[in-house]
Amino acid sequence: MPTAQLVAHARIFDFIASQSLPTPYLVVDLPEIKHNYQALATQLPDAQIYYALKANPAPEILQLLVKLGASFDAASLPEIQACLSAGARPHQISFGNTIKKAADIATAYELGVRLFAFDSLQELEKLAVHAAGSQVYCRLLMECTGAEWPLSRKFGCELDMAKDLLIHSDRLGLQAYGVSFHVGSQQLDVCQWEMAIATSARLFRDLAAVGVELQMLNVGGGFPARYRSSVPELASYTSEIDTALARHFENQRPIVMLEPGRSLVADAGIINTEVVLISQKSYHEDRRWVFLDIGKFGGLAETMDEAIRYRLRTPWDGTPTGSVILAGPTCDSADILYERSDYQLPLNLQAGDRIQILSAGAYTSTYASVGFNGFAPLAVYCI
């Protein structure tokens, strides 16, 4: 684990130890986010960083990133308003969701936003009516092989359609600005950017041949956090991206946008949770059920299909362990976190013990339900 992350964890553990706050809650270390942002900016100095605030839109995080010079990828009108409230300027915001209400497009345009994503003719036509003259970029469909949280099928269009739509955008009075792709969240295969950049470069050339000069390539996010699986270092990703850009665009490199979310905030956050119950379902099975006061509906939605496997810290670490099934507290049978992923927890663990869920700063507080079973949304403390 990097030294900076160890320091961040120490600060969070000190905060938890010094407080008597009701669980569950998330603690986010702002200096760690600053470190992660600066590391990415240093390794890809010519790229524009658009933080995907859906990962964690805490006002303190947005204010920090504004001070650092970040731009923002917003998925909704309230996210745009959150960016503006944090001090971002409209030209620093990309309305990156390809599925937008016409009224939200119009309001974003009134607020000064001029950069919009699309992936269909129908969305493009809405932009032409409600965001006339804006810069638009088309999202390409990607397979997302190697990603632990894939983003395929729902977003993007195929290459031939993207070409036609970008040509058509000029006819509609919009500015065909560029192309975007996303190789999947928590992407563990650094080679996925090579194919995506090669495909994008081909589209740039095909469009230039018919008089449409694109300026920007948005290479998305996908840089990983440190969950249970080992992950390549950030330098492996940035080197692969830089090499692919040089290979496929040569001396005509476009403006490059990045959309990191998870990689900036996940490792900077830890959830403190309490063991509610430890029980068994049968005289014949010795595997324990461990119920926490947080589950899928309290912020751990990415445990769906056991896709994201968090690291855990208990007060009994280092003592003998046994296999467990981890579940949340709600009256919903889907609220099981891990049953197949071979989680082992100390045999001494008991109800009332506190467990820390590591690398939980991304896609937790924003996924928490508003009052399902009466449980409050996940509290967030930024330090």
Rank of each mutant, 00 (worst) to 15 (best):
G298V: 03
I93T: 05
A246V: 09
F223I: 14
I167S: 09
Q350D: 00
L151R: 12
Q192D: 08
A117C: 12
S200A: 13
A4N: 13
E143H: 15
S365D: 10
G69W: 01
A246Q: 15
T98L: 05
R287F: 04
L347P: 08
L264G: 01
S282E: 09
G96D: 10
V275G: 00
L326H: 08
T3Y: 13
V219L: 00
S263F: 02
S341L: 12
G146I: 06
S230E: 15
A47I: 06
T319W: 00
T98Q: 10
V290T: 08
I270H: 03
P320Q: 02
R262I: 14
S94P: 09
R309Q: 15
R139G: 07
Q63D: 02
Q122T: 14
L172Y: 04
P22G: 03
S263A: 15
G371F: 05
R354Y: 04
G178D: 09
R340W: 12
F116M: 06
T23Q: 02
W316E: 00
E285M: 09
S369P: 05
P22N: 05
R262Y: 12
A82E: 11
V210R: 07
S185T: 07
S365T: 11
E285V: 15
S200T: 02
V370W: 11
V370N: 12
S18E: 14
T330P: 01
S180K: 06
T273Y: 03
K100E: 13
E250D: 12
E143D: 15
H35E: 09
A88K: 01
D293H: 03
A88V: 01
L234W: 05
G133C: 03
Q81I: 06
E32A: 14
F372S: 07
L30I: 13
R247M: 12
I255M: 15
L111G: 02
T3C: 08
Q63C: 05
Y283Q: 14
I357T: 06
